[in-house]
Structures are given as C-alpha cells and as structure tokens.
Design a binder for these strands. Structure first.
Length: 825
RNA sequence: GCGAAAGUGGCGGAAUUGGCAGACGCGCUGGACUUAGGAUCCAGUGAGGCAACUCGUAGGGGUUCGAGUCCCCUCUUUCGCACCA
C-alpha cells in the first residue's frame, strides 16, 4: 500500500496557505532571515531544474523557521526579454497576455511542489508597478553621471533585430536564435559600471561566497597596472594615447598597432575614400566576429597606414599599422608594439619585415637579435634605453613611468578588462528608457510625474525589420517636457539584466507606489542572507546586482555594501550525463512525478542524489528509492501511532541494551543531521541520517513488548523523524506530526534536539594498528586510561602474533578511536 | 595557453580537524511471504584467496606511527577566461 501522498499534499498546502505561515511580517521579535532563489523566466511550465533549485531554497527556509527565524522567501518573475516576445509570436498572441498566463501556470505548479513562498510579495518585471521604478533608477543613474550614450560597433543579430552583449554571443552566433552575428555601428546607452570596478574587486563585506565565483569575477574585471603614454602623430598635434603594462620596453617600440575601429583610422578612411586596400581590410576585420578575431589561432594580419608617430621618450619615428589583433575595447585601443619582447608583436613584425630592437637583455647576456625565434618576455637587464641602461627591468617599469610623467608624456594608470555595460536593446518587450529626444533641447529625461513610460499594447509583435515601438506613432511622438515642441521618445528598451539588478530590494516593499522601496523596510531585510542560483550568472547578473546595490547605497537607499551575504551555486539536473534539453530529448516532466509519487518524493530524490552545489544525475530508480523511503516512514509511524504517542508521555528509566543502542543511534542521527543542515548545507547526508535513524528504529521488532521507560526512547526516536524530514518532505512530515497528536505545526516546533550525554556509548571499540595495518580490536569502557589501553592492546592475541620478532618503538593512543603501534626489527 | 575545480565499488555518493575507506541510496545475488505489487521482509554485495591474509580512493614518488585527505611530478575530465598590450 502506498501512502496517500496526493491527499496529504493538497491538505497541507491548503493549511499553510490559510494560516499564512510564509507571509513574512515586516516586524518580528525573531531575528530575520532572507532566503532568495534567483527568479525564473516565466516559461509557463515547471521544469526539473526549477524543482531542484527551489527545493534547496525551501529547505533553507523551513530549517531557518524551525531554528526560530522570521524568514522571508519571496518569488517573482523575470518576465521581460526576447523569449517572451518569441513565445508570443509562436502562439500568435501578445507577450502581455502569454506572460501573465504563464505566470499563473507556474505559480500553481510552485504551489504543487509545496514551496513556502511569500506570494504577498510577488514581483513581475513586466508590470508597470515594477518597471516604473527601474525607469526611476535609470534617471538617478543619469543624474549621477553614470549613464552615457556612445556610438560604437555592436554585435548585431539581424534575425532578432537587436544588439547583443559580447557575453551573449556564442561562437559568433546569437545565444538565443543561433544566427550569425555581424558588426553594426549604433548609438547606444551605457551604464558606467567601470566607475565601480575597484570596489567590485573587494569581496571583504561578503560573508560566504564560493571561492570560484569570486575568482571568476576578479578575472572578469581584470585589473592591470601599467602606464598611459601619449605618442604624437607625425607632423600633427594629434596625440595617440597607448596603454601598456610593460613601460620597461618602451625604447624597443618599432611600430604602433591600431584596430580598424580606432577613431583615427575611421578618420583616415573618411579622408581617403579611394584607398581601396585600406577600406577592404578594415571592412573585413570589423565584420570578423570578435570571438574568432581574438582566438589564439587567428592569423595576424595588417596593412601599413602610410603614417608615422613619434615615441616621446626617444623621438623615434614609428610606423603605424592597422591590424586585426588589437581590440578597441581594451585600454586605449592603441598598442605600442615591441616585437623583441611581446610574442604577438614578434609574429607580426617577422611577417611584415618590421625592425626588431632588443631593449631587455637576459641576465646572462645571451640574447642575439639574429638568433631570436620568439620574443623574450621575461624580466632582464635594460639595454638600448638611454639613462635606464643597466637597470633591472622590473625596477625600470616604475622609473620609466615616472620619467614620462615628469616630462608630461604620460602617467601611471590602471586599466580594467571590464567594459561599461551596454543596456540598449532594440526590442519591444522590455523596460522603455525614460528619455525624450527633442530637436531643440536634446536628450530630456521623462519627468517623474509621467513615469512609468508605459509600453504601448497596440504593437505588431513579430519579426519586423525594426523595433516594433517605431510603429506606434501616438506613443512615439510626444511634446518635449521642457520646451513643449514636438519630440520623439527613445525607442530602445533596457537589457533585462537591469530589471534583475534590484529586485531583491523591491521584495522588501513590493507594493510601494511612492518610491522603488522604503529604505527602512529594505534595510530590515537586506542583505539577502542566503542567495541561491546557477553558476552561469557569476560574471553578469551577480556583478550587475552588486553594482546596483553599491549605487543604491551611495544614494542612501540601502545601508549595506553587498546585496548577497551568502551564495550557493546549485548544480543542474542532468540525464545520461548531459544537461536536460528539449533538443536532446532527455527531459523529464516533474508534473508526472508529482502526480504519480508526490512532490515530497521528488524533493527528497533531488536533494538526496548529491550535495546542492553539484549536478544531480536523474534516475528513475532513485525516485523509486525516495518513494520507498517515505512509505517506510509512513508505515512505521502510522502503524504504531498509539504506541508512539504513549511513549512520548512515558518517563525515562531503566532500559535494556537494545534500546540503549537505539537511544545512541537517534541522538547521533539528530546530531549529524543538525551539523549537515546548519553548518554545511549538505542535505544529501542529512537525509541519509534520517534513513539511518529509520533503519535503527525498525530493528526493534516488537515495540509493543517494551516497558514504559523503553517506550519513551522509542517514541522519541519515531517523533524525531517528522522533524528531520520537514525541510525536505514537508507534507508527509506535517501529516505524521499530526498523527502523533503534536499540537503546533512543525515550523514552530523547533529543531529536533539531541543530548550530548547520549552521544557516548557504554563501551567503545578501539582499533589496533601495527605500522598502519589493522591488527585487532578492543571493546572497552570510555573511561579506560591510555596506559591501560596500551597494556591491553599488547595482550590481544593477534597483536602478539603480529609483533612476534619485532620490538615496539612507540605506541600512540587516539582517544576514543585507536591504538597505533609502531614496531620494527 | 592561463586560471579554477574535480578524479573513490556496477551507479549516485559518504568519510567535519590526517585516524576502521566505501555511510546512505540505487542496482545486483540468494531466501521468505503473498492479497503477484513500480510490493514487503530477511541475508549478502570493493577485488583476489578455502583461510590466515593480501591488494584497493586516476598513475608515480614523498612526509607520517598512520594519507582519499598534506607535499612534489604526471595523466584525464569539467568549468571559466583567452591575441588583455
């Protein structure tokens, strides 16, 4: 007989809802705890990944409630973006309609999983009451000088009619639709995240993040120290600033390398419309996809510009080349090339027969120009570098930078790999940028009283050749808020990462219609105590959210430095070793599992299969195992309920050996469970402890024959099971708890408790090792002294045999564990 | 190429600080029972050996009374970054 999981799950979901136990109060005598899982894109169907991720957050939530915290676990929807637009197109509908339908469908599936979510705080980024405040924050960023427009070459997806972030280009193709990405010059809106680069490198205010996420962010930001040096264009006043991390090699510059995107190159192209070679080369390189262009295999190519510049340090006249191996986005976009000491420059110089000049000599002076087959990039002794000759090259870095600074040629500087955040998207289904373009006044921010700039409903959503917002004249054409003349709205919408960069704060005050959130309420809940989400967000979402949080702190809206105190990056669910996906055809429908075995079974399987941060391999047999386990627990407690209830009111007293062993087992299991749940977040072993406890209890074959004092232990052991299961299988746990006639609900019944004194057994087993090999065992009382143990060990028959012919050199006693004998000839 | 993490039975995984390797679950083998179930219960299950014992945590070396755990080298896998000047 299977336990009636369907009835039980519906019953307790109703009770939790009616008692509103997951509605987090704004004030509480208990300490607060904020649990947040990354909100989903509302696809309309719960997939196994959602079930897995949110089971972790729910386990944390229920544990912290048992522990006595006032817990908030909110949920919302990251509802803007291209998938929603595409979904609507496919279903011949409107994203507003399909998205709201999907949200309703997902919410009922979340409820079917029994997640303890505070639905009073639900947020959806596509609703005007939310995106209004995103526009408001945009204006604040603008007012603080953190927003600017820039014309630049962008990854352009013709299929999606939108700009893609570099991070959104995968192997030269659009990450959403897979079509080829080309380069197009566009005026774009940017957030100056680089202003916060230095602070974003500081993780000291974070309590517990995985080391590897912090490392990834550090590498992503990519700080490097170096010098900015201004070269002069020959016969001109034009400066060409370069950034270098190797100012010690500056006397070895033999050419300058510029990318085709460089403004100077663009100017030359404009002034020489007939220079076919130059035009062809530049067009070719610009349209090469950026990833391919920056791959190690790419062949270095270039054309001589016919122009020269002057090295300010020694007055050398240097050829300027236009190349495919320099990136406009990094440093100043111009590179001083030192072939002798940089491998890329070396390869390029060899290919185009550009001179090479050694300025750093190996310590053994063995470097000979004619014999060089590769660049010498190690430190060494300065040569051919005027007054710096003879210096150590590492010391010369600072000396040369200082010399250049004193003469006004340059300065010491830092540069970051991190680029400013391009937020413009040429799509309909996003948050409109609250800007009006006036022919007279220029860029004008939409006044607060006119916020939100609402998305018009009457657009043709489809694969049009331009942004659908352009097709709504009554929305597009407005009068200028400043001068009243006819003006035009900005039609770009914001990257959806903007929406998800502050939602964690909105949950604290989700219905506020005066401001994004009330600072006092936000500060009560923030920072998020436990954030849970995928590792794939390490460099984008998690970095953008930290940037926004620091900006909001600088505005005085929040008083913490970091949004997420602890981070858990959960693994994904795989099947046959691969990520589940429709295209691979290896998906599993969680709804089927819920209907057939119950949500509790699905949750226990997902949490038991591996630790939360590791991938879970799907296994139908594993699901059956979880189901069998819950059924065994059910039969034990449901079948012995009167006995257990009686035991719970019995007094302790004399007990037999078998029950003494059970008492040790139950206290030990609770101890392990507590450590695994609270200290280590290792739910797979916490569940294993509950299984071990069950196995220990069912060893008692005839509980009805137990005397009262023994029944007290038996009852205690059985009653521990619902508590231990509550974070993972809450429905069956509540039902069993009720069967045992406990009065409160489990979340207010406290953690299961163990007693230290029962973690000791009456006798303990010492193992005896001789030279590291197991040679015997010893059953003794825990109080046995070290000397006695040593003597006893030497009397063990097998030990005596193994020591025959050897002399004992040393005996080491590890209290409670082992006796180690070192012996030799 | 650089950086990070990992490698344990047939499988998923345990082993909190260096202290009985393989907890727990799956699978498998044998048995019991039967209201033949996606049941339940009992016993067994790293390899070799009749046994005493030997071997065993990717491979090789080292430190230690004692190493899955610490150190060095090699191999493999995964992830991140990648002409970053």
């Amino acid at each position: 007989m299977e336990y009636p999981f369907g009835k039980i799950e519906r019953k307790w979901q109703r009770v939790w809802r009616e008692k509103r136990i997951f509605s987090a109060p704004q004030k509480s005598e208990k300490p607060k705890y904020y649990v947040l899982s990354m909100f989903p894109y509302p696809s309309g169907v719960l997939h196994i990944g959602h079930a897995s991720n949110y089971s972790i957050g729910d386990a944390v939530t229920r544990l912290k409630m048992m522990q006595g915290y006032s817990v908030m676990q909110p949920m919302g929807y990251d509802a803007f973006g291209m998938p929603a637009e595409n979904y609507a197109i496919q279903h011949n509908s409107h994203p507003r309609i399909t998205t709201e339908e999907n949200i309703a469908a997902m919410r009922s599936q979340f409820d079917g999983m029994g997640f303890g979510l505070d639905w009073d705080r639900e947020v959806s980024t596509c609703r005007p009451d939310y995106y209004r405040w995103g526009q408001y924050i945009f204006k604040k960023l603008y007012e603080k000088g953190l927003v600017y427009r820039k014309k630049s070459f962008q990854n352009w997806c013709e299929e999606c009619q939108t700009v893609l972030a570099n991070e959104q280009v995968e192997d030269g193709s659009c990450w959403r639709c897979g079509s080829e990405v080309e380069q197009k010059e566009l005026e774009q809106w940017y957030f100056r995240i680089t202003d916060y680069a230095e602070e974003l490198l500081d993780f000291s205010k974070i309590i517990d993040w995985p080391e590897r996420v912090m490392t990834m962010q550090k590498n992503w930001i990519g700080k490097s120290e170096g010098a900015k040096i201004n070269f002069m264009l020959e016969n001109s006043e034009t400066q060409i600033p370069i950034f270098t991390t190797r100012p010690d090699t500056i006397y070895g510059v033999t050419f300058m390398a510029l990318p085709p995107e460089h403004p100077l190159v663009q100017a030359w192209l404009a002034s020489e419309p007939d220079n076919k070679a130059l035009h062809d080369f530049c067009r070719k390189v610009i349209n090469e996809d950026k990833l391919l262009r920056s791959s190690a295999e790419a062949v270095k190519e270039g054309v001589f510009s016919g122009r020269y510049c002057i090295n300010p340090l020694n007055g050398d006249k240097v050829q300027i080349w236009i190349t495919n191996y320099v990136l406009m986005d990094y440093g100043t976009g111009a590179v001083m090339a030192v072939p002798a000491h940089d491998q890329r420059d070396f390869d390029f110089a060899k290919k185009y027969k550009i001179p090479i000049k050694i300025v750093i000599q190996k310590p053994d002076s063995s470097l000979v120009l004619e014999e060089m087959t590769e660049a010498y990039i190690e430190p060494g002794i300065m040569v051919n570098s005027q007054q710096f000759d003879g210096m150590e090259s590492e010391a010369a870095k600072a000396a040369i930078t200082e010399w250049a600074a004193q003469n006004g040629w340059g300065e010491q500087t830092f540069t970051y790999r991190l680029r400013d955040w391009g937020i413009s998207r040429q799509r309909y289904w996003g948050n409109p940028i609250p800007v009006i373009h006036c022919p007279k006044c220029g860029v004008v921010l939409v006044p607060d009283r006119d916020l939100p700039v609402r998305l018009p409903d009457n657009v043709q959503v489809g694969r049009t050749t331009s942004n659908p917002l352009l097709s709504v004249p009554e929305w597009l054409n407005v009068s200028c808020p400043q001068c009243g003349e006819m003006a035009r709205r900005e039609t770009d919408t914001m990257d959806t990462f903007v929406d998800s960069s502050w939602y964690f704060a909105r949950y604290a005050d989700p219905k506020n219609d005066k401001e994004p959130f009330n600072p006092e309420q936000a500060n009560y809940w923030l920072p998020v105590d436990q954030y849970i989400g995928g590792i794939e967000h390490a460099c984008m979402h998690l970095l953008y959210a930290r940037f926004f949080h620091k900006f909001m702190r600088d505005l005085g809206w929040v008083n913490s430095d970091e949004p997420f105190a602890r981070l858990l990056t959960q693994g994904m669910v795989t099947k046959d070793g691969a990520k589940m996906s429709k295209s691979k055809g290896n998906t599993v429908d969680p709804q089927y599992i819920i209907d057939r075995f119950g949500a509790d079974t699905l949750r226990v399987f997902l949490l038991f299969a591996s630790p939360p941060e590791k991938d879970v391999e799907w296994s139908d047999d594993g699901v059956m195992g979880a189901f069998r386990f819950l059924n065994r627990v059910w039969r034990l407690i449901d079948g012995n309920q009167d006995l257990i209830v009686k035991g719970l009111s019995c007094n302790p007293g004399e007990i037999g050996e078998e029950i003494a062993e059970l008492r040790y087992q139950v206290h030990h299991a609770i101890y392990r469970w507590t450590e695994d749940c609270l200290q280590r977040m290792q739910y797979n072993t916490a569940i294993a402890s509950a299984m071990e406890l069950l196995n220990a209890i069912v060893k008692i074959k005839e509980p009805e024959k137990l005397v009262d004092a023994e029944l007290a232990v038996y009852g205690f052991a059985c009653a521990a099971l619902p508590k231990m299961l509550y974070p993972f299988a809450p429905h069956i746990a509540e039902e069993l708890w009720e069967i045992l006639r406990r009065e409160k609900l489990l979340h207010e019944s406290g953690l299961p408790g163990y007693e230290e004194r029962y973690l000791q057994r009456d006798s303990i087993t010492y193992v005896i090792q001789i030279n590291g090999k197991l040679r015997g065992k010893l059953e003794v009382s825990p109080a046995t002294s070290s000397e006695t143990l040593q003597a006893m060990a030497l009397e063990v028959e097998n030990v005596k045999r193994c020591l025959d012919g050897l002399s004992v050199k040393k005996i080491i006693v590890i209290p409670g564990k082992m006796i180690s004998i070192a012996a030799g000839k």
